[in-house]
Design a protein around this nucleic acid. Structure first.
Ligand SMILES: [Mn+2]
Ligand SMILES: [Mn+2]
Ligand SMILES: [Zn+2]
Ligand SMILES: [Zn+2]
Lengths: 138, 138
DNA sequence: AATAAGTTTGTAATCATTACAAGTTAGCAA
DNA sequence: TTGCTAACTTGTAATGATTACAAACTTATT
């Protein structure tokens, strides 16, 4: 999938965030590598192309992109923050054997609970864990 | 609700974990304060009664209780691990205004995703965020 | 080109969590 | 009851992720 730069620049402009060279690289990485990467995975890879890139910039860029709503944070594991360029609602499954994170489609609006009738829900995260088919076969 | 000590001791024994004085205190705190507390909240409170208690012991105790399946970890926020003595499946809602975490009932097994037909699911976490009724009224 | 606002960098600081070694306690068996 | 051993607790040090900050740099606008 190709990034729509005009669209993205517009989104960012609303929040006085510039689409700098490095931020674009981070976006490209997320777009080309749909693996819900950690900061380190992004940094190590991009640093090969951009030797002057600092890890702080990766953090700054990701925070700016999250603020602009272009990227979503995943806290499926408590010791590693991951990032997802797909912001449409979907569920995440982490394999406890190989560590891979899978997307799955799920109708989140069907998750109604009477207990929440009077609550304003802004965000829904669904995290499952278990064993993926590849690892079951071993 | 009263803790069933025999039951708990048996659970722990299976894993060679003793129900020591401090662990029992941590369990009691979780049982009496259904607020999904952080390590710090537990430590600060218990330290008043047990001045020699160290924070490491709170971590050790919680890890042991989680290993034994008596306590569940919540990673609803990436910068603070929380703990729940209620291990039955239920959802969690965090109010972005007051920070309070609410339980809600939800039938997780009734929501299947075809994408996960071949996956073995061990754990399901549902985290919602938004504004709670108390904060909406302000 | 001048300007101002936003960005990047490197380093230092912070915060949560774990590692470790030494001393203490609990549970079991003699 | 006593002693033994494994498990537990403690304090401190180490680790790892993330943020703070100031100086240098870049970008967009005039
Ligand atoms: Mn995803
Ligand atoms: Mn709960
Ligand atoms: Zn797997
Ligand atoms: Zn609230």
């Amino acid at each position: 999938m190709k990034l729509n730069l005009e669209e993205i620049t517009k989104e960012l402009k609303n929040k006085n965030i510039r689409l700098s060279h490095h931020r674009l690289k981070v976006l490209e990485f997320l777009n080309d590598n749909r693996i819900h990467p950690t900061v380190d995975q992004i940094y190590i890879q991009l640093h090969k192309e951009l030797p002057t890139l600092s890890k702080t910039t990766v953090y700054n860029s990701l925070n700016a992109l999250v603020d602009a709503g272009l990227v979503k944070v995943l806290t499926i594991e408590d010791n590693e923050t991951r990032y997802d360029i797909v912001t449409d609602n979907h569920g995440h499954f982490k394999c406890e054997s190989c560590g891979k994170i899978y997307d799955f489609e799920i109708n989140l609006s069907s998750f109604q609970s009477k207990d929440l009738d009077d609550f304003k829900i802004n965000n829904r995260d669904i995290y499952f864990k278990g064993i993926c088919p590849d690892c079951i076969q071993q």
